[in-house]
Deep mutational scan, measured.
Amino acid sequence: TTYYDVLGVKPNATQEELKKAYRKLALKYHPDKNPNEGEKFKQISQAYEVLSDAKKRELYDKGGE
């Protein structure tokens, strides 16, 4: 599973699309609303952290993490 899959976006997604997808999923899986989905929330946050940063995203796209 790639970070793009976690957020449900395509690899060519814009920053705005990433932000929108992250917010939607973060609300859905937030531990306050969904106590059993803490791990999913962490995955979503990690994916967004990497993909929202241009340098980290470039490194990730080249095969790094």
Rank of each mutant, 00 (worst) to 15 (best):
T1E: 11
T1M: 14
T1Q: 14
T2D: 10
T2K: 05
T2L: 09
T2C: 15
T2N: 13
T2S: 14
Y3V: 02
Y3L: 13
Y3G: 01
Y3S: 01
Y3P: 04
Y3W: 08
Y4S: 01
Y4M: 01
Y4F: 02
Y4T: 01
D5L: 06
D5C: 08
D5N: 07
V6E: 04
V6N: 03
L7Q: 00
L7K: 00
L7P: 00
L7E: 00
L7D: 00
G8K: 05
V9G: 00
V9C: 08
V9F: 00
V9M: 04
V9T: 04
K10N: 10
K10M: 11
K10D: 09
P11D: 06
P11C: 10
P11A: 10
P11F: 12
N12P: 02
N12G: 08
N12F: 07
A13H: 02
A13L: 01
T14E: 03
T14W: 01
T14V: 03
T14A: 03
Q15W: 11
Q15A: 13
Q15R: 08
Q15N: 11
Q15C: 11
Q15H: 09
E16S: 10
E16D: 12
E17V: 05
E17L: 05
L18M: 06
L18K: 00
L18S: 00
K19C: 13
K19E: 15
K19D: 15
K19T: 14
K19M: 14
K19G: 09
K20T: 12
K20E: 15
K20D: 13
A21G: 02
A21C: 04
A21T: 04
A21Q: 05
A21W: 02
A21P: 00
A21V: 05
Y22K: 01
Y22W: 08
Y22G: 00
Y22D: 00
R23G: 08
K24R: 14
K24S: 12
K24E: 14
K24D: 11
K24Y: 12
K24P: 02
K24F: 12
L25E: 03
L25D: 00
L25Q: 05
L25A: 05
L25R: 03
L25N: 02
A26Q: 09
A26E: 09
A26F: 14
L27Y: 12
L27T: 09
K28R: 11
K28F: 10
K28W: 07
K28H: 08
Y29I: 04
Y29L: 05
Y29D: 02
Y29E: 02
H30K: 06
H30Y: 05
P31I: 06
P31W: 05
P31S: 07
P31E: 07
P31T: 07
P31H: 07
P31C: 07
D32G: 08
D32Q: 08
D32M: 11
D32R: 10
K33Q: 12
K33T: 13
K33W: 10
K33V: 15
K33S: 12
N34Y: 09
N34Q: 07
P35H: 07
P35A: 10
P35L: 07
N36T: 13
N36A: 13
N36V: 10
E37L: 09
E37M: 14
E37I: 06
E37G: 13
G38I: 15
G38M: 15
E39A: 11
E39K: 08
E39N: 08
E39D: 12
E39Q: 09
E39P: 06
K40D: 04
K40L: 12
F41L: 07
F41R: 04
F41T: 02
F41I: 04
F41D: 01
K42P: 03
Q43K: 09
Q43S: 08
Q43G: 05
Q43T: 09
Q43P: 03
I44S: 01
I44Q: 01
I44P: 00
S45I: 14
S45W: 13
S45R: 15
Q46P: 01
Q46L: 14
Q46I: 14
Q46D: 12
Q46W: 10
A47R: 00
A47Y: 03
A47Q: 01
A47H: 01
Y48N: 01
Y48V: 01
Y48A: 01
Y48K: 01
Y48Q: 01
Y48M: 05
Y48S: 01
E49L: 11
E49Q: 09
E49A: 13
V50G: 02
V50Q: 04
V50M: 05
V50H: 05
L51C: 01
L51Y: 00
L51G: 00
L51R: 00
L51T: 01
S52E: 03
S52L: 06
S52P: 00
D53V: 04
D53W: 03
D53P: 01
D53S: 05
A54F: 09
A54S: 10
A54N: 08
A54G: 07
K55C: 13
K55H: 12
K55V: 15
K55D: 10
K56A: 11
K56Q: 11
K56I: 05
R57M: 03
E58H: 08
E58F: 10
E58C: 10
E58N: 07
L59Q: 13
L59A: 14
L59D: 12
L59S: 09
L59H: 07
Y60K: 03
Y60R: 02
Y60D: 03
Y60Q: 03
Y60I: 04
D61T: 03
D61W: 02
D61N: 04
D61F: 02
D61Y: 02
K62G: 07
K62H: 11
K62M: 10
K62R: 12
K62D: 06
G63A: 13
G63Y: 15
G63C: 15
G64Q: 15
G64D: 12
G64R: 15
G64E: 14
